[in-house]
C-alpha cells in the first residue's frame, strides 16, 4: 500500500518538482539500483564487498566505450554494459569467493582499486582521469533520453524493474540459499549446498545490476570518469546500504535517496561533505545499525500495537 502511494508520487514527480528536483530523483533512482545490488551481496548473502564501485564503473565505461569506439546503439550499449559487468564480476568473484570474512573484504577492495588504476592509466582508451564524455543518449520513436523527463522515466522504469527482479531472486530457492549462507556457511555445506557456486552466482547477479546502474549513470551524465570506480564511490554505496538498512532491499534504496538529498543540502552549505559522510557512517555503525528502514518498521509496528 505504502509502496503504491510512493509509486504514484514517483509518476507525478517530474510534473511537480521542476527540473532540479527531477534530476535529483533521477540520480537517486540510479544509485538506488546500485545500492540494492550491493544489498543482495551484503544483506542477503553476508558477503561484504568493499569494491562494489568496480562493477558500477565497468558498466558505465562499457556503455560509453561501446558507443564511442564501437559505434553501438546506446540501447544495445546498456545490454553490453550489463554483460560486461557480469563478466567482470565472474572473473573477480571467481577469486573472491574462495576466501571469506576479512580476506574477502580486502580482495574486493584490491580488485576495485586495480580497475580504478587501469581507468586512470589507460589514457588512450579511458581518457585517464579526465574521463570521457559526449556520447549519444539512447532514443526510441523520437523520444530521446536527452529530455530530462524521459530520462527520469527511463530510470524509474529501470528501478522498478530491478526491484521486481531482485525481489523475485530473493524469494526464490536461490535467494533462500543465500540467506542460509549468510546465517551459517558451515551448516550449509554440511547440508550439501555448493556454497562457492552460490556465492559466485550472487556475485555475478549483483555485478550485473550494479553495471546496469552504472550504464544509466553514464547516460544521465553523458560523462564518465575514474571517480565512478573509486574507493570513495565504493564507500558511498556501503553507506547507502548501512544508512537505509542492511538486508531489506527497499532500505538501501531509501538510503541512496537520503544520501543524495543530504549531499545536495550539505554541499551547498559547507565544504566538509566528506567529513559529514564519515561521521554519519560512524554514527550509523555505532548507534543505528538497523538503518532507516529498520527504524521505520519498528516505529510502524509499535504504532500498530498501540
Amino acid at each position: 500500500m505504502g509502496e503504491f502511494v510512493f509509486f504514484l508520487l514517483a509518476l507525478a514527480w517530474p510534473f511537480l518538482a521542476g527540473s532540479y528536483g527531477t534530476g535529483l530523483i533521477t540520480e537517486a533512482l540510479i544509485f538506488a539500483i546500485a545500492a540494492m545490488s550491493l544489498d543482495l551481496l551484503m544483506g542477503y548473502s553476508g558477503l561484504v564487498s568493499f569494491g562494489h564501485a568496480a562493477f558500477f564503473g565497468v558498466g558505465a565505461y562499457a556503455l560509453a566505450l561501446s558507443g564511442m569506439k564501437l559505434g553501438l546503439n546506446p540501447w544495445l550499449g546498456i545490454l553490453v554494459a550489463v554483460m560486461t559487468s557480469a563478466l567482470a564480476a565472474l572473473i573477480i568473484g571467481y577469486f573472491c569467493v574462495r576466501v571469506s570474512g576479512v580476506a574477502f573484504i580486502m580482495l574486493t577492495l584490491a580488485f576495485a582499486q586495480l580497475l580504478y588504476s587501469a581507468a586512470v592509466k589507460w589514457r588512450g582508451i579511458t581518457g585517464g582521469s579526465d574521463g570521457i564524455g559526449g556520447f549519444d543518449r539512447p532514443q526510441i520513436a523520437g523520444l530521446s533520453l536527452n529530455d530530462p523527463i524521459y530520462m527520469y522515466f527511463a530510470c524509474l522504469l529501470g528501478f522498478v524493474l530491478s526491484l521486481w527482479l531482485l525481489r523475485r531472486i530473493i524469494n526464490s530457492q536461490f535467494g533462500h540459499a543465500l540467506v542460509g549462507l549468510r546465517e551459517n556457511e558451515t551448516r550449509m555445506r554440511a547440508l550439501g549446498f555448493s556454497t562457492d557456486r552460490l556465492k559466485l552466482c550472487a556475485f555475478v547477479l549483483s555485478g550485473a545490476f550494479a553495471g546496469f546502474a552504472g550504464a544509466l549513470y553514464a547516460i544521465y551524465n553523458s560523462f564518465i570518469s575514474p571517480d565512478a570506480l573509486s574507493f570513495a564511490q565504493s564507500g558511498m554505496f556501503l553507506l547507502m546500504v548501512v544508512l537505509g538498512g542492511v538486508g531489506s532491499l527497499l532500505g538501501p534504496a531509501i538510503g541512496a535517496a537520503i544520501f543524495l538529498l543530504m549531499k545536495q543540502f550539505v554541499s551547498s552549505h559547507t565544504e566538509h561533505w566528506l567529513a559529514i559522510v564519515g561521521i554519519i557512517f560512524v554514527c550509523c555503525v555505532m548507534f543505528f545499525r538497523s538503518g532507516v528502514y529498520g527504524f521505520l518498521k519498528q516505529w510502524l509496528e509499535r504504532g500498530a500495537r498501540t
Binding site: L274, G278, I279
Partner: peptide, 11 residues
Amino acid sequence: VLLTFGLSFVF
C-alpha cells in the same frame, strides 16, 4: 571495518 572506513573519510 565499516567504522574505520567512515573514519578514513573524516581524516
